[in-house]
């Protein structure tokens, strides 16, 4: 094969080489464009805000300071937000993943009567929804307002994830396995726990990751259902600081520069809090990248 390729004339190879270099350049430019804003936020967070204003921090930090980070970790909203987000993410991920797996497994069993009807029952909710207000009213009626469960239960079962998991169960666990389990006197539940779950670690990993990212980044559900600021997740704490430009009195205390100084600190806190907020997911993601790709592919097969 190699020899063949070399023989096919230097003209083609020459133009291919030029094209390859062109492609590398285009992709490199795009990669840099994607990377630069993130890089800029990081260097701005450790630079003097006045230098950031003046446009002195395009490539390197200027007037190095860690004051922003020191202030951010004193900011009560950020600290409680962080703790809340960790709690919501852990509990939410466990519940959501359990629900998806418990729903997807029976639906993957071709010998279960009513499988199609139940699937349609779930799929309908992908297209028809009650909308914002009726859902809100039901959540309020069930007494979940201002509780962690309002962020977890109303989302219910993610139908997309159920389809992904079901496809996985169907394609990677042979139906004969169920027959064999039955002959060995294994009930359906026992088969599920002892055979199906251990064989399904990859898809469970995917579901866990999907759920984690969704819970960690969610803010809108909390905005609607949480009244108490002490229960706000991190994303809403970030909203107060970044979008509504409110740094708490606590963070601004102990300084004597007046309005300009307050402004300076607010800007500093904005950059630092963005870094603090984005870091957990950005650090975790390269490790789970492979799982993500796999999950999307399994899902795409069945659309």
């Amino acid at each position: 094969m190699r020899k063949n390729k070399n023989k096919t004339g230097s003209v083609v190879r020459g133009s291919d080489r030029a094209m390859e270099i062109g492609m590398v350049i285009i992709i490199t430019i795009f990669v840099l464009m994607v990377l630069y804003p993130l890089y800029y936020v990081v260097i701005a967070s450790i630079s003097d805000p006045y230098d950031v204003y003046a446009g002195k921090t395009f490539l390197f930090p200027s007037g190095f300071t860690l004051e922003g980070y020191a202030r951010v970790f004193k900011e009560k909203a950020i600290v409680t937000g962080y703790l809340n987000s960790i709690l919501y993410t852990v509990v939410g991920t466990i519940v959501a993943t359990a629900l998806v797996v418990m729903t997807a497994y029976p639906l993957s069993r071709k010998d279960m009567p009513g499988r199609k009807t139940i699937m349609i029952f779930f799929i309908i909710t992908m297209y028809f929804t009650g909308g914002l207000i009726p859902t809100y009213l039901v959540v309020a009626k069930t007494g979940l307002l201002n509780s962690m469960w309002a962020l977890i239960l109303p989302g219910g079962v993610s139908v997309f994830n159920v389809i992904v998991a079901r496809t996985y169960f169907e394609s990677s666990i042979p139906q004969e396995m169920y027959e064999a389990a039955k002959i060995d006197g294994c009930g359906n539940l026992k088969t599920f726990v002892k055979i199906v779950l251990p064989l399904s670690k990859p898809i469970i990993a995917v579901m866990v990751i999907f759920a984690m990212v969704a819970f960690w980044n969610d803010w809108f559900t909390a905005l609607i259902y949480m009244n108490d600021k002490d229960r706000y997740p991190l994303q809403l704490a970030l909203r107060q600081i970044m979008i509504q430009s409110q740094a708490s009195a606590n963070a601004l205390s102990g300084m004597d520069g007046g309005y300009a100084e307050a402004n300076r600190i607010t800007e500093l806190i904005k950059f630092a809090s963005m870094v603090v907020g984005a870091v957990p997911m950005l650090i975790a993601y390269p490790f789970v990248q492979k799982h993500f790709e796999k999950g999307l592919m399994v899902g795409a097969v069945k659309g």
Binding site: T103, T125, P134, V162
Partner: peptide
């Protein structure tokens, strides 16, 4: 066949209940 699958239906209950409460009742509320 339904009875022999009772455990499977048991697994489905939490998902179905949540879907009825938080998806179908709001649809009725429209």
């Amino acid at each position: 066949r339904i009875i022999s699958c009772w455990e499977l239906y048991l697994l489905l209950i939490p998902g179905i209940v949540l879907t009825i409460i938080y998806k179908y009742i709001p649809m009725y509320g429209v």
